[in-house]
Simulated assay, not measured.
Amino acid sequence: MSDLPLARRDQIAGRLSAGQAVIAAALANEFGVSEDAIRRDLRALAAEGRCRRVYGGALPIAGGMTPMAARIGQDRERKLALARTAVRSIARGEFLFLDSGSTNLALAEVLPDDFDLTIATNAVDIAAAVLHRQDLHLIVIGGSVHAAVGGCVDADALMQVQRLNIDRCFVGACAVSAQGGISALDPTDAAFKRTLLSLSRVSVAMVTNEKLETRAPHRIAAAKTISQTIVEHDAPAARLALLRRAGATIVTASPPA
């Protein structure tokens, strides 16, 4: 095996991408280096969003749980197209909740001006984006930040959100399907989202194509319970037909600018 750090790191990254967990001690023995060297490799890979550090090694990251920081720049124009469609239904003076998610971050960028909107969010990046707008009232739901989710979904955050009466929530979803409804990869995140939906008069999910008719382990709600599911302009017709048969209300976004 090569003892070049970058070559070694690439081999470790390849195993993680293939869904394999890695153990630092075993890797150190295999590559003939110290465990400290392997730990440096794993720290670097975790910083790139390619693994999740655990005691003694690292675990692969499921596709939908790539850290929020790594998702922000992905498919930006498509997410903005979803967001521009979503804002059309927002009424003046509404109290909105923007759940964690890169598509909801895109929504924060295109909220209408001078609509006397109050925005609550549990997401760090969304709060920062809203803070730059002088015409928006901001409420931040705090707690311990979950790096992959990109926001706070712990017990403190859950307690804070239960005090709100929300007009319209934009809920993040890791997967959406006719049979599985909308679902999440993290159980704590899913519990937070279920509570959020129960407190909201209207619920909206903006869904990019790769999430349609996929499943995640933690169910949030049935597809028919979401007030609007906004999909991309080129969403596969067969997948949309399944969702409509399950009772989902589908809104199709305009093509990206």
Rank of each mutant, 00 (worst) to 15 (best):
I141M: 07
V130P: 08
H146F: 14
D135E: 03
V130H: 10
L117C: 05
H132C: 06
L136A: 10
S102K: 07
A127F: 04
E109N: 14
F115C: 09
L107A: 09
T118V: 02
V130I: 15
L98Y: 06
G142C: 01
V130G: 10
H146V: 02
A148N: 11
Q134H: 04
L136Y: 02
V149K: 10
N122F: 12
L105N: 13
T118P: 03
Q134E: 03
A91L: 12
L98N: 11
H146E: 15
R92E: 10
S144M: 05
A120T: 04
I126E: 12
A148Y: 04
I139Q: 06
N104T: 15
G142M: 00
P112A: 08
A108I: 02
V110G: 07
T103I: 03
E109I: 00
A147I: 01
A91W: 02
A106Y: 02
A148I: 01
F95P: 08
T121I: 03
L136H: 08
L107M: 06
L105C: 08
D99N: 15
G151Q: 13
G150A: 15
A147G: 04
A147R: 12
H146M: 13
L117D: 04
F115W: 11
L107Q: 11
L131W: 05
G93S: 12
V130Q: 09
L105A: 15
T103D: 07
S102V: 03
H137G: 06
N122G: 14
G151C: 15
R92P: 01
S102M: 04
L96G: 14
D135I: 01
H137D: 10
V110T: 05
F97A: 09
D99K: 15
A148R: 10
G150H: 10
S102T: 07
L98S: 12
F95V: 12
L107K: 09
V110N: 07
T103N: 05
D116R: 09
A147V: 03
V140G: 12
V149R: 12
L98R: 09
D125G: 02
L117Y: 03
A123W: 05
D116T: 03
D99C: 13
R133G: 03
I139P: 00
N104E: 13
P112S: 07
Q134W: 00
L117P: 03
L117N: 04
G150M: 07
I90V: 14
D135Q: 05
A147H: 07
L131S: 15
D135L: 01
L131G: 13
T103Y: 05
S100Q: 06
A120S: 15
A127T: 01
A128N: 07
G150P: 07
D114P: 00
I119Y: 10
L138Q: 09
D116Q: 09
D116H: 06
L107D: 08
H137N: 13
A108V: 03
A129D: 02
R133P: 01
G101Y: 05
S144W: 01
A123M: 11
S100M: 07
